[in-house]
Design a protein around this nucleic acid. Structure first.
Lengths: 273, 273
DNA sequence: GGCCAACATGTAGTAAAATTACACCAATAA
DNA sequence: TTATTGGTGTAATTTTACTACATGTTGGCC
């Protein structure tokens, strides 16, 4: 959580940045401070603090308190430091691994606030599911597709803008569109989300909570953006997305009950030697 | 905290005991419920709930929320237990996440025994790199390809047997073939490895160390096989492979020095808005 | 049985805290 | 200049936790 905040700092307005700084410097006190006092402490107004919370992907000030106590009571190993050009190869490799582990741990701690049950319900009765992603997320999409289709639900993966928009334009009410994007900045994604939602389809987004795509989605799985401070920084957030999709996949399989076990076992048997 | 509550239960009045019971049965929801809703849920009044809090040694209702989130995000090491059909969705999701984290942690601890430097040397002077994988590993392969080509080295990804064999048959001494396989059981992979090695190419394998593919490779990155005891078990080993490739990628970029930063920055700039 | 005491519980009010709506101001582009 | 946008604060609204007080309910004692 603190990491999420410090990552968000650069793209916040001055007053909000003061709030972020104060929290990072006084995490203990921040955990159960009141809105009014925090505002006074940072020499700003209450709404600004609330806006700050929204910008770092929280629902409101109350959630901030919850997330902070959570963060403070879970030990943080595997802290991520940037890879620097004069690292030895082995140093660098360990740092990258730590960053990956860290991003998974962060995601784990946020699982409780994600709409997993809702997503499972939507997918369970879906006519078809489409996974859409560009670039690196495109691979995540096809991986997810490859995984979910084994549950017996028609799946497809879309990895270019025209296809995504076309798909969105012909969705039906019980279709599910899963949008994968790290930054959430692609305007066409937001457009596709709006389009699909207008036609009654469910739009699930795994993306930066502070983005147009996130705002247009019917269900949002917030994925913190790793700001690329260094060109060497790998795409750990992609790992987190994959793991999250794994988790949703299993939850869906459970919800399907016998059908799923049956389908999974059959598709595994087909690969036997 | 939950223990404290159940300990206190017997010496509480009936209504307060209902409150205690409900909290123990729904700890997750209890962590960020409102006073009014909790009272309604237990069919009692708000002051009773507050009195309950006082009786279990808390200052008030607000403190209850804090203590609960603390208790819930407690250490709980990331030990993996299999997902069972009668898990609730949230239980299952956490287990899957834990399994993923665990497999990354395991891989991290084995990094020192992996031939990273050798792999980097081979790749640095490679004429081309091909990543080969079938099924789920196919996605890992194309992901890796997408990542490494940005370092300026010609890359390709192969995801079916004929292509892999054909590629192996025409390799040249400074080509690198990266084989991705969970089990290492595909005989054709071992054949491709032998073929490519005979023509002088470097064969790097990310696979089960106890397999034919592993034995044929010139460089081996051992990836522990997760035995699929349950159909629900997700593909955490694939995550580990991805993370490992991330790490190698960064190590290679460092070894390339300025060239790599330059290439990476350029390919990033190409996506700017 | 009637009366009192102690406790349990709920009603209604209060103070504080979070959130929202709206207005203002400064910086920037037309 | 004027319009527009984004950042910010003021003030009103709603929600939330807590408190004071009233009402019942039980159990003992005369």
């Amino acid at each position: 959580m603190l990491a999420t905040i410090s990552q968000a700092l650069p793209r916040l307005s001055p007053s909000e940045r003061r709030v972020g700084h104060w929290i990072i410097e006084h995490p203990k006190e921040a955990a159960n401070i009141t809105l009014a006092r925090l505002a006074r402490e940072c020499e700003t107004s209450e709404p600004t603090v609330v806006r700050f919370c929204r910008h770092v992907g929280l629902g409101g000030f109350r959630e901030l308190a919850i997330r902070l106590t959570e963060a403070l009571s879970s030990p943080t190993t595997y802290v991520h430091r940037d890879v620097s050009p004069d690292d030895s190869a082995s140093d660098a490799v360990i740092k990258v691994m730590d960053a990956s582990i860290q991003s998974l741990i962060e995601m784990r701690s946020q699982l409780s606030s994600m709409p997993i049950d809702e997503a499972v319900i939507a997918m369970k009765s879906a006519r078809q599911i489409a996974f859409a992603g560009l670039g690196a997320s495109g691979h995540v999409a096809s991986d997810a597709c490859h995984k979910f289709f084994r549950l017996g639900i028609p799946c497809s993966s879309l990895s270019d803008i025209p296809m995504i928009l076309q798909f969105a334009a012909i969705t039906q009410p019980d279709d599910v569109l899963v949008l994968l994007s790290h930054t959430g900045r692609w305007q066409d994604f937001a457009r596709a989300a709006k389009l699909a939602k207008a036609r009654g389809a469910s739009v699930i987004a795994l993306t930066n909570p502070d983005s147009d795509v996130a705002r247009e989605a019917s269900l949002l799985f917030p994925c913190p953006v790793i700001e690329d401070t260094s060109v060497y920084t790998p795409m750990s957030s992609r790992l987190a997305q994959l793991a999250l999709l794994d988790a949703i996949h299993v939850a869906l399989a459970l919800a399907q009950g016998d059908t799923a076990s049956e389908n999974l076992r059959r598709s595994k048997d087909a690969l036997k030697f």
